[in-house]
Simulated scan of single mutants.
Amino acid sequence: MFADVRRRPGNYGLGGTFREASAFVNGCDAGNSWGLLIGFREWLALKLGCEANLTWAGLILKLADVDASLHPSGSNLSATEDERAVEVLFAELDEFLSARKGASDVGRILEKYLRQNS
């Protein structure tokens, strides 16, 4: 479904901005009893080599090379920053969900994160 949202955001009532895409993904997580994105923040932190002290959306902005401190919650992004952040969001989400097929995979992600940040 996320691949389709990425291609055709208007079909899902979205305008294609990072802020809307983030809200949509959060809604999907909520609709799955907050289990869809378990480990996603840690996955992103591992990629960045930092701690997971930001929201996953903030970490996506860092990966997209957007200064999250200037754009809280993905607001006021330039068109270029917005497009790059949306692309990074869906690419990382796709990679994460492909790598995390079951509970044991989530455990491995969290364990790796904890080892790196101990």
Rank of each mutant, 00 (worst) to 15 (best):
H71K: 07
H71A: 08
S73M: 02
S75K: 12
S75D: 05
N76C: 07
N76S: 14
S78W: 01
S78R: 04
A79M: 05
A79T: 04
T80I: 08
T80D: 08
T80S: 07
E81D: 12
E81I: 01
D82R: 03
D82A: 01
E83N: 09
R84G: 00
R84W: 03
A85V: 06
A85H: 04
V86M: 04
V86K: 00
V86S: 00
V86W: 01
V86Q: 01
V86H: 00
V88D: 00
L89S: 04
F90N: 02
A91W: 04
A91D: 12
A91M: 07
A91Y: 04
E92W: 03
E92L: 00
D94A: 11
L97T: 15
S98E: 14
A99W: 01
R100S: 09
K101F: 11
K101S: 11
G102S: 13
G102W: 07
A103G: 07
S104E: 14
S104L: 13
D105E: 15
D105F: 08
V106S: 11
G107Y: 10
R108H: 10
R108Y: 08
R108K: 15
I109T: 14
I109A: 05
L110Q: 06
E111A: 13
E111F: 10
K112S: 15
L114V: 08
R115V: 13
R115P: 02
R115I: 10
Q116W: 11
Q116N: 13
N117K: 11
N117A: 09
S118Q: 12
S118E: 13
